[in-house]
Design a protein around this nucleic acid. Structure first.
Lengths: 238, 238
DNA sequence: GATTGTGAATTATTTCACAGCT
DNA sequence: AGCTGTGAAATAATTCACAATC
């Protein structure tokens, strides 16, 4: 039995390659850690709220406070991508929003194929937030003959055989896997072969994918267990 | 505007207090980091599979491989709680499963109140995995008059006013918040006041709760954005 | 006067390497 | 011989502190 060295899940694929940090060549992003990247999403959301409130500037202290982060952390995170703030004033909200959108890759539209039209799939489909944020569901796949052919919004549920066809025809960039654990690995293999390079996986198993594919797991059971662990006092001394 | 120092979300509440690590007093758990705690859930799941396959022992190498973790990491994680393995043989599957269940706090039943009977709430309710793992939904709350009074399995959907009553009557330990972002903070305040000490939050906002309450966020939009960031090449040099 | 940007210090987490059992 | 348990080393992430700037 061999050790499994290449980690394809997102935490690992975030900081790949280069052991030399190649520091501070301002203007132009460098290696960004996974936690930092996730915090950027929080900042963007908070900034969008501020923009809606017509706020012109915001200090690192206030923005960080809204995100539950501390101020130096936020400043450091943003400084990875440039100097957006004005000393003495804070960050210009209206300018920073599009810059962050650009950095996070949400200034363009992403085409998503949803595999699995069960409860979770349906909940995700209805979740309007995606569309707002530029994630467009261009195909829904299910193997249940009852569901095939039904229309969800603009798309018609396709049978499993149409998975690859839908991905290539619609040019899907991203797949959401809302299928049973027993099928998830097989589906992952197929979507990858069809050209998808990022997967949001709701099945509670580790997907084995090539190193150039990013996987993000949403494991609700694990989240509950983490809470049980805290409630049970697992973090404390006996 | 003041800095927000106390972080109640789970990542922070995991490693609270004690700056002195008070090291290796074997037999009895010590401070456990958030990532380590989450890995324990992965190990448990893999071990349960192995138990189902009637495997007697498993090496750190194989178990770690199945979880996408490396072997020394796994050994170190387990060693935080004791010495479960036999040198030269590996870990005894049948013994380790209940020990890990105990450590993770999933050997007992946890009583859960589900707030929000919309798409996400319904998907969660149907998600049989919870019950298997000891999370029993003892109450469902919604404010939609259409839904109030409907029966979901053994429970009847209660109106919003019944939130506190349900929590105390049913002795709920844990709340799942599947409500719109605009209501999440208010609901969080109420469940905490009613005695809940752990929250699984699906609303894309940061909940402000007292420091003795654990919050775990499931933020699907953020997960998608993290994938977009990788697809857009955000982690790489220009 | 306020607030950013960032090297340096600190703290946390992971990995290594090997002694110690079975 | 094989594999665990664990200090020590290495790496990563966060926080601090303060000079630079508006």
């Amino acid at each position: 039995l061999k050790e499994k060295p290449p980690q394809h899940h997102i935490c690992e694929s975030f900081h790949k390659a280069s052991p030399t940090p190649s520091k501070h060549v301002r203007n132009g992003p460098r290696k960004v850690s996974d936690p930092a990247a996730r915090r950027l999403s929080l900042y963007l959301r908070a900034l969008e709220e501020l923009a809606a409130e017509e706020r012109e500037t915001v200090s690192s202290l206030e923005l960080a406070g809204r995100c539950g982060i501390n101020a130096p952390q936020l400043r450091k995170d943003l400084s990875l991508f440039g100097s957006f703030g004005k000393r003495g004033f804070g960050y210009p909200v209206a300018e920073l929003v599009p810059r962050l959108r650009e950095i996070l890759g949400v200034s363009r539209e992403w085409r998503v194929v949803l595999v699995g039209a069960g409860r979770i799939g349906a909940a995700l489909f209805e979740h309007g937030e995606f569309r707002e944020r530029g994630f467009l569901i261009v195909g829904v796949i299910d193997r249940d003959p009852e569901k095939i052919g039904r229309r969800w919004g603009d798309v018609t549920i396709q049978p499993a055989e149409e998975l690859e066809g839908t991905i290539t025809r619609e040019g899907a960039d991203l797949a959401i896997l809302a299928v049973p654990a027993s099928e998830a690995q097989a589906v992952a293999g197929r979507v990858v072969k069809a050209g998808v390079r990022a997967i949001l996986n709701f099945a509670p198993i580790r997907l084995d994918v090539p190193p150039n594919v990013a996987v993000n797991d949403v494991n609700i059971g694990l989240e509950l267990e983490a809470l049980a662990f805290v409630l049970a006092g697992g973090t404390e001394a006996p």
